[in-house]
């Protein structure tokens, strides 16, 4: 079985801008963009978040703060996985209390990463709300978690792998499904 291209470079760009438009629209409806912050989950969620912040800043003429989350220390499988994950730094230089937080990740799968991320976020203050934006939702949730903004829903089998490749880490933008 060959790899299946889900999104090419052009469609990755289109999908991200559609996500941004939706984030702007819904948060303007719920007040303003002044208390909005974007936080990306390392590694690819952080790159996506950076692009989303740039897009929204340009489109809505605002300056949205960007934060980066490393969820390693909040994982629920630290003592069960065999390869110990490398701890990278979390970079949130602002208080989250009363902020509207959009959490960004590349793929939504079991929901366990998002559970870890929410626990960590709450250690930085009490946000007004936390919203979730993902590029791909591939199903197979193990926790009651859903995304507010989804770039593309891709039905998958559990053994299949979704690979989100971004120019920042992988040289080019694309999403592929590996059997």
């Amino acid at each position: 079985m060959k790899d299946k291209l889900i999104l090419d470079k052009k469609n990755v760009g289109k999908t991200i801008s559609a996500l941004c438009d939706e984030i702007i629209k819904r948060n303007q409806e719920r007040g303003s963009l002044n208390d909005l912050v974007i936080i990306g989950i390392r590694t690819r969620g952080a790159h996506l978040a950076e692009r989303i912040v740039q897009f929204i800043n340009r489109r809505a003429e605002v300056e949205i703060p960007l934060g980066i989350l490393d969820i390693t220390l909040y994982r629920d499988d630290l003592t069960t996985i065999s390869a110990q994950p490398i701890v990278r730094s979390t970079e949130i230089s602002f208080d989250l209390t009363d902020k509207k937080v959009v959490l960004v990740d590349d793929v939504l799968y079991t929901g366990r990463t998002i559970r870890s991320a929410m626990d960590e976020l709450i250690d930085f203050g009490r946000p007004k709300n936390i919203q979730l934006a993902v590029l791909i939702d591939r199903g197979h949730r193990e926790l009651p978690i859903q995304a507010d903004y989804v770039g593309k829903i891709v039905p998958t089998k559990k053994k299949e792998i979704i690979e989100v490749r971004l120019a920042e880490t992988d040289g080019k933008d694309e999403v592929v499904l590996k059997p």
């Binding site: 220390l73 490398i86 730094s89 979390t90 250690d123 930085f124």
Partner: peptide
């Protein structure tokens, strides 16, 4: 090097409002 790199990531925890992680 691994210990020093890991320590760099941990330094941030001590300047958080809640200086604690559940690891």
């Amino acid at each position: 090097s691994l210990i020093l790199d890991t320590a760099k990531s941990f330094k941030e925890v001590s300047v958080r409002p809640i200086k604690k992680v559940p690891a």
